[in-house]
Amino acid sequence: MKISKSKVYTLIQNYLIKECKKKKIKKNFNLDKVDFFKKGIIDSLGFLNLISTIEKKLNVEIDLSNENPSKLTNLYNLTKLIYQRI
């Protein structure tokens, strides 16, 4: 079954929104563009959890080991990279 880019986008977006709520971070920014690592929405363990959540929900394996981490920390870029790899 082909997985759409918008599905990947929504999964990441929902995860980030949940984390914002949990950490009581006011969402007065554009989630598409914000660096969610610098903003404190997720840390390195949270990122690991996000990837495994997507893997589980889409039943795929995601390998980002060759990617520059600084390109993985916003919603738009991460969606693009994950979509290319599944």
Binding site: S44, L64, S65, N66, N68, P69, S70, L72, T73
Partner: peptide, 12 residues
């Protein structure tokens, strides 16, 4: 190691 590189220390 910059903080964000801890997402993928292998790259660093």
């Amino acid at each position: 190691t910059p903080d964000d590189q801890l997402l993928n220390p292998g790259y660093f």
